[in-house]
Amino acid sequence: MNWWVLIAFVAAMLVLRWRRVGILTWVAAWLVGLYLVLNYVFVVPVPVSVIKIYMGIVSLSLFAFVLTDSQRMTEFWQPIQAFVVEPRYRPLLALVALAIPALVAFRIYADMTATPQAPFFARTVHPAPPDSIIVHDSELALGTADNPYRDLETSNPEEFKERLEKGRAVYYLNCFYCHGDLMAGAGMYAHALNPIPTNFQDPGTIAMLREAFLYWRIAKGAPGMPEEGGPWQSAMPAWESFLTEEEMWNVILFLYDFTGYQPRAVELH
């Protein structure tokens, strides 16, 4: 977070409020200010598509703000009207009249000279898994399957701990190159990969998935992704070729233990 930008924004708005600026200035300040905040406050840039959504919502609200009150509406229109009608604004008006086509021209210029961009990346991060998979010759129904060792957590904490340790070994022997030592997706290879390795600390990944889902993703890797999970250049290996079933379940236990998340439970009817 760039706190300075945020503080500057708040300060500017306070000054405007204190000076009791006209409603038109006020509305414009909010729009411009929020645009700047969205673009510059966050260290990790906010994607354009989200900025568009937010700006749309805020514009709509400002519109409602002005239009709910007839006095405000008159106040809003008066400067615009004056600008268009009054002779003393003529030169400025002429400038605006020139600026509009100039902006259009600039836009076209910018579009023509833009560096080519890869198209939007509408990858489905958590595609629907198949109903069942076969790993090492045994079939697993993904809809109902659960981690066979999950029960140990209460029934046999000792063995559970052992399994966690085994899972830890699996993770640091195989996974941390990509998923990172802190499971934040920042392993040493991460920067070269696209899509990048999943950040397990993010509340939107393993925290909302079932263990069977992870098992599927780990066992089948990128090659096992269905169509909507593409593009298929994900580097996630199909671990069934290297690990036993037990090892995979163990590492899943470890993933949840390390991040502190609980897996989504199987909902039975």
Binding site: P45, P47, V48, S49, V50, Q117, A118, P119, F120, F121, A122, N194, P195, I196
Partner: peptide, 8 residues
Amino acid sequence: ILSTTEEV
């Protein structure tokens, strides 16, 4: 989020 590769 619908985003470009760079944004991702």
